[in-house]
Design a protein around this nucleic acid. Structure first.
Length: 473
RNA sequence: GCGGGAAUAGCUCAGUUGGUAGAGCAUUAGCUUCCCAAGCUGAGGGCCGCGGGUUCGAGUCCCGUUUCCCGCUCCA
């Protein structure tokens, strides 16, 4: 396992990821994608988009990031998407107030003080405002697990939604939010998409877009950031069919990662034991990052919570009517929700490899290779003249310009041929084409494959069909 | 948010008791080179994260701050 620092260093050096606003000292947890990073990002999104929408039963949307404030009222984000936090003045430890109380209740039960535990639990379920939590903590004299004291600050609510203002007035009547998840953009468009797309249940709606959460901490490079991109698909099914579709999408999503080269031993399932308010079943796909396993995608059974909530608050019917059976119902939803940046980081970590020289003759240092799946590689082909004279550069450049019509290509004449191969290895280019002396007389080139480093002699006229074949999925 | 570490060229790092900034690699212009990174000759690139302070003088000492990494905490 390679260190995260090694990956970050390569990402910066070769133009995958830069710190945002770097010349001003950077800004916490914000990152910019460079020339190669954006290609990789687009390739990942493209692969996902095609896997989702090149089907009969899934349509795409791209909803606005700013939405009507009632959306977040219906979804439960205004009331639920916030954490009551409390600090201990002695230890300076910060806790979630509700977790602190829950842990306290658990301890009471261990000591068989069930009367007090019941009383406390009853008050906890009724607690809503920060002041309610504070009262419980003080009434029961709940101590800080770290310092043992009850020297607490007030409980403060940290809402994770970014606030901004619609229009010029900086007051509460114009408060709106940056969406904390992209899913609601799909739910509110459920009817529009179903009708305009002439879809019947079961069907899905896919979307790729940014979402924002004002997290208390950012962490681990791209893994936890306040601005992030999601690729999400909500699949609408008949109530009762959700288990079957959950299993279907669970398998589909796992296989998608495998198909694009993710090593199975670095993936694992993580079942949610604590479910969110909207879900009745949820599982994550986790990838083994240098800092441990972390979620890259969630598959959730969201029931009819969201559609029902929007139906109730908007007063608009969000039902599906089966024209044959005359059945009428609010569909259940299976969601697949992947993080684009997390996916990129996982594909990057998954692809990174170093090879030590195997023989004495091999000069040079270790070989750094990004073993991307060809479909994801930011640069697909590189073209080199073997030496920079004798008509080879002209021939090579002509081939380069021609390939550029169909592929992302780089042209490189600088340095020894081995060095140029290594440059391409380090950015994960799967194929390098070299024009040598024979090219000019026999009309042939060598194609060198990244992982095996094997070379193949092929006719110049066959380059494109060779590559199309290799890049076809 | 707490604790620890770090910040000097694109990258990895030197930089003595405080005295006007260095190496290797990378980049770039040529030469050389018929297949897997260190051949030859040049060139560019740094207010030493940022802001204060001490000092005749600060990359170096002090304070603050920002950012990243590691470990906790947190992650409806």
């Amino acid at each position: 396992m390679f260190k995260l620092d090694t990956i970050i260093s390569l990402a910066k050096r070769r133009g995958f990821v830069f710190q945002s606003s770097e010349i001003y000292g950077g800004i916490n947890g914000c990152w910019d994608y460079g020339p190669l990073g954006v290609e990789l990002l687009l390739n990942i999104k493209d692969a996902w988009w095609k896997a989702m929408t090149f089907r009969d039963d899934i349509e795409g949307v791209d909803a606005s990031i700013l939405m009507h404030p009632k959306v977040w009222e219906a979804s439960g984000h205004i009331t639920q998407f916030s954490d009551p936090m409390i600090d201990n003045k002695t230890s300076k430890a910060r806790h979630r107030a509700d977790n602190l109380i829950e842990d306290f209740i658990a301890k009471l039960r261990k000591k068989n003080k069930n009367d007090i535990a019941d009383d406390c639990e009853q008050k906890l379920t009724k607690a809503q405002d920060p002041a309610d939590f504070y009262k419980i903590i003080m009434d029961f004299q709940i101590p800080d697990p770290v310092s043992g004291t009850t020297d607490w600050t007030d409980v403060r609510n940290f809402n994770l939604m970014f606030k901004t203002f619609l229009g010029p007035l900086d007051d509460t009547s114009s408060t709106i939010y940056l969406r904390p998840e992209s899913a609601q953009g799909i739910f509110v468009n459920f009817k529009n998409v179903m009708e305009s797309g002439r879809q019947k249940v079961p069907f899905g709606i896919a979307q790729i877009g940014k979402a924002f959460r004002n997290e208390i901490n950012t962490k681990n490079f791209l893994f936890r950031t306040r601005e992030f991109e999601q690729m999400e698909m909500q699949y609408f099914v008949k109530p009762g069919d959700e288990k079957e579709w959950f299993d279907y999408w669970k398998e589909m999503r796992w296989n998608w990662y495998i198909q694009y080269g993710m090593k199975p031993e670095r993936l694992k399932w993580k079942l949610h034991d604590k479910l969110a308010h909207y879900a009745n079943h949820a599982i994550d796909i986790e990838f083994e990052f240098p800092f441990g396993f972390g979620e890259i995608e969630g598959i959730h059974s969201r029931t009819d919570f969201d559609l029902k909530a929007h139906q109730a608050l908007s007063g608009k019917k969000l039902e599906y009517v089966d024209t044959v059976t005359k059945d009428r119902f609010v569909p259940y939803v299976i969601e697949t929700s992947g993080g684009v940046s997390r996916g990129l980081m996982a594909f990057l970590c998954n692809a990174y490899d170093e090879e030590e020289p195997t023989t004495e003759e091999e000069k040079g240092e270790k070989r750094v290779v990004l073993r991307f799946h060809p479909k994801l590689a930011p640069v697909q082909v590189a073209v080199f003249p073997l030496v920079n004279k004798d008509g080879m550069p002209e021939k090579a450049h002509a081939i380069y310009k021609d390939l550029q019509k169909n592929f992302k290509v780089q042209y490189d004449t600088s340095g020894a041929i081995g060095r140029r191969y290594r440059r391409q290895d380090e950015i994960g280019t799967p194929y390098c084409i070299t024009i040598d002396g024979d090219s000019l007389v026999n009309n042939t080139v060598t194609i060198r494959e990244r992982d095996s480093m094997k070379q193949e002699l092929i006719n110049i006229d066959n380059i494109k069909s060779y590559l199309f074949d290799k890049f076809a999925l």
